[in-house]
Simulated assay, not measured.
Amino acid sequence: MELNPWMESVSGVEPPRKPGRAALRVVADLLGEKPRTVYAWYRRDRIPSFGAALNITLKSKGAVDWNGIFIPFARAAIEVGGRDVA
């Protein structure tokens, strides 16, 4: 599973709606991160650190793996012509 769909499911927001910063607070609390940080991951403005990615994998009980975290960021970078998303 990719990171954003997992965050949507944890926040309780039903597609096609997108969670806002307030809805992602549930995810931030679960992960022990700031809501701003989780929202930046959701918008793909920032990539989770190694430690954060490990925590996501553990807290999601393996539903989100490394590929589910990092492949969407790589795909977004390629789509926008190599924009630095780090």
Rank of each mutant, 00 (worst) to 15 (best):
K61V: 00
W66G: 03
L24I: 14
K18S: 05
G68S: 13
T57G: 01
P48G: 10
R17M: 05
M7D: 08
N4P: 02
V64M: 02
R25T: 15
G20P: 14
I69F: 02
V38C: 08
T57Q: 02
A22F: 04
R83D: 07
N55G: 01
R83L: 10
L30K: 01
N67M: 07
P48N: 11
V13E: 10
Y39M: 15
D45H: 12
V26F: 04
G20K: 15
I78Y: 04
Y42T: 12
K59S: 05
G20N: 15
A86L: 10
L30H: 00
I71P: 02
V38H: 10
P19A: 15
G12D: 05
K34S: 11
G82L: 09
K18A: 08
E33N: 08
T37E: 08
G32F: 05
K34I: 10
R17D: 05
P15E: 11
A86C: 07
G81W: 06
I69S: 02
E14Q: 13
R36W: 08
A76Y: 04
M7W: 08
G32Q: 11
G68T: 15
P35E: 15
A53H: 00
V10S: 06
V80A: 05
Y42R: 11
E14S: 12
P35Y: 14
F73C: 03
I78P: 01
F73Q: 05
L58I: 01
R25W: 11
D29A: 14
V38N: 10
A28G: 10
V64T: 04
E8M: 12
T57E: 02
W6V: 05
V10F: 01
G32M: 07
S9P: 05
A40K: 12
K34R: 09
G20W: 14
P35G: 13
R44A: 06
L54G: 03
I71H: 06
N55T: 03
W6K: 02
F50E: 09
G62N: 04
L3D: 05
V80M: 09
V27A: 07
V38A: 09
A53Q: 01
G12L: 10
A28S: 14
S11L: 11
S60T: 00
V27I: 09
R83I: 13
G51I: 02
G82W: 09
E33H: 09
L24W: 08
G62V: 06
A23E: 15
M1F: 03
N67H: 11
F70W: 11
K18G: 05
S49K: 08
P35I: 15
V10P: 00
N55K: 01
E14H: 07
A76C: 07
N4R: 08
V80W: 04
I78G: 04
S9Y: 02
I69E: 03
K59T: 08
I71T: 12
N67R: 11
V85I: 13
S9A: 09
A52I: 04
S60E: 00
R25I: 14
A22R: 13
S49L: 13
L30R: 04
S9L: 05
S49M: 13
A52C: 07
F70G: 03
R83F: 02
A22Y: 09
R17G: 02
E8P: 00
